[in-house]
Amino acid sequence: AVSDRLIGRKGVVMEAISPQNSGLVKVDGETWRATSGTVLDVGEEVSVKAIEGVKLVVEKLE
């Protein structure tokens, strides 16, 4: 699937994400809805860990 190529890629949070609410991330110039187990603020760099349906699962870049 086209989304599989995104796993491991870096992105930037465009709309804040929390465990309760999905947000938006931009990866390779495309905007995706994303979820995370932690709070991520706009502008934070993330990496794509998995894909669930049409949402990316991301975590903060260390």
Rank of each mutant, 00 (worst) to 15 (best):
25 V>C: 05
49 K>T: 11
7 I>L: 13
33 R>D: 05
16 A>P: 09
40 L>Q: 05
10 K>I: 09
45 E>S: 11
6 L>K: 03
29 G>D: 08
55 K>Y: 15
34 A>F: 03
52 E>F: 09
47 S>Y: 14
41 D>R: 15
42 V>S: 06
9 R>Y: 13
1 A>K: 04
17 I>E: 02
27 V>R: 01
2 V>E: 15
26 K>P: 00
41 D>V: 11
52 E>T: 10
55 K>N: 12
3 S>Q: 11
25 V>G: 00
6 L>F: 08
32 W>M: 04
4 D>L: 09
46 V>M: 03
37 G>W: 15
29 G>T: 06
59 E>W: 14
51 I>V: 09
45 E>Q: 12
11 G>K: 00
4 D>G: 08
36 S>L: 01
44 E>R: 06
23 G>Q: 01
54 V>I: 10
56 L>K: 00
18 S>G: 09
35 T>K: 10
1 A>H: 07
37 G>Q: 13
12 V>C: 06
62 E>Y: 15
23 G>N: 01
59 E>A: 12
7 I>N: 03
56 L>E: 01
16 A>E: 07
50 A>I: 03
47 S>V: 14
36 S>M: 01
28 D>W: 07
31 T>F: 13
14 M>T: 12
17 I>N: 02
6 L>P: 04
8 G>K: 04
19 P>D: 06
42 V>I: 11
13 V>R: 00
25 V>F: 02
19 P>V: 06
27 V>S: 02
27 V>F: 03
57 V>E: 04
38 T>P: 02
17 I>K: 01
1 A>C: 09
61 L>Q: 09
55 K>S: 13
49 K>N: 05
8 G>H: 04
38 T>H: 08
53 G>I: 04
24 L>I: 13
35 T>Y: 12
40 L>S: 03
60 K>H: 06
23 G>D: 00
36 S>D: 01
44 E>A: 12
55 K>F: 15
37 G>A: 12
8 G>M: 03
37 G>R: 13
57 V>I: 10
25 V>M: 02
45 E>A: 12
12 V>H: 08
13 V>W: 01
42 V>P: 09
19 P>A: 09
58 V>W: 00
6 L>D: 02
13 V>K: 00
58 V>K: 00
15 E>K: 12
4 D>Y: 03
41 D>C: 06
3 S>M: 10
50 A>C: 06
33 R>Y: 13
1 A>D: 15
27 V>W: 02
20 Q>F: 15
60 K>M: 04
44 E>Y: 06
24 L>M: 11
12 V>T: 09
59 E>Y: 15
2 V>R: 03
51 I>N: 04
25 V>D: 00
14 M>A: 08
7 I>D: 02
19 P>N: 05
32 W>C: 03
35 T>E: 08
10 K>F: 10
24 L>P: 01
19 P>K: 07
38 T>R: 11
36 S>A: 09
43 G>Q: 06
39 V>N: 10
32 W>I: 03
3 S>K: 06
24 L>V: 10
20 Q>T: 13
50 A>S: 08
43 G>Y: 07
16 A>F: 14
42 V>D: 05
5 R>M: 12
57 V>T: 05
20 Q>D: 13
22 S>M: 14
47 S>T: 13
62 E>C: 08
46 V>N: 00
42 V>R: 12
39 V>F: 14
10 K>H: 10
15 E>S: 13
2 V>I: 15
9 R>L: 15
43 G>M: 09
43 G>P: 04
28 D>Y: 07
28 D>I: 08
47 S>N: 13
40 L>P: 01
39 V>C: 06
52 E>V: 14
39 V>Y: 14
1 A>E: 15
51 I>K: 04
15 E>Y: 15
14 M>G: 03
51 I>G: 03
38 T>C: 05
2 V>T: 13
2 V>M: 10
13 V>P: 00
33 R>L: 09
23 G>H: 01
45 E>C: 07
55 K>G: 12
21 N>Y: 12
19 P>C: 06
37 G>D: 11
48 V>F: 01
26 K>D: 07
24 L>Q: 08
54 V>S: 12
13 V>I: 06
36 S>E: 01
38 T>Y: 15
43 G>D: 09
32 W>T: 02
52 E>P: 02
57 V>W: 14
18 S>C: 07
61 L>T: 11
17 I>Y: 02
39 V>H: 14
61 L>A: 11
4 D>S: 11
4 D>P: 05
28 D>K: 05
54 V>G: 12
25 V>K: 00
7 I>V: 12
48 V>Q: 00
28 D>C: 07
40 L>E: 02
1 A>T: 12
20 Q>N: 10
20 Q>C: 10
52 E>Y: 14
22 S>A: 12
2 V>Q: 07
57 V>S: 05
9 R>M: 15
33 R>H: 07
57 V>P: 00
46 V>Y: 01
30 E>Q: 08
23 G>P: 01
47 S>W: 15
51 I>S: 04
53 G>L: 04
16 A>N: 12
15 E>M: 15
54 V>L: 13
56 L>S: 01
8 G>Y: 03
24 L>W: 15
42 V>M: 07
47 S>C: 06
17 I>C: 05
44 E>N: 09
8 G>Q: 03
29 G>E: 06
10 K>G: 06
2 V>H: 07
30 E>I: 07
25 V>N: 01
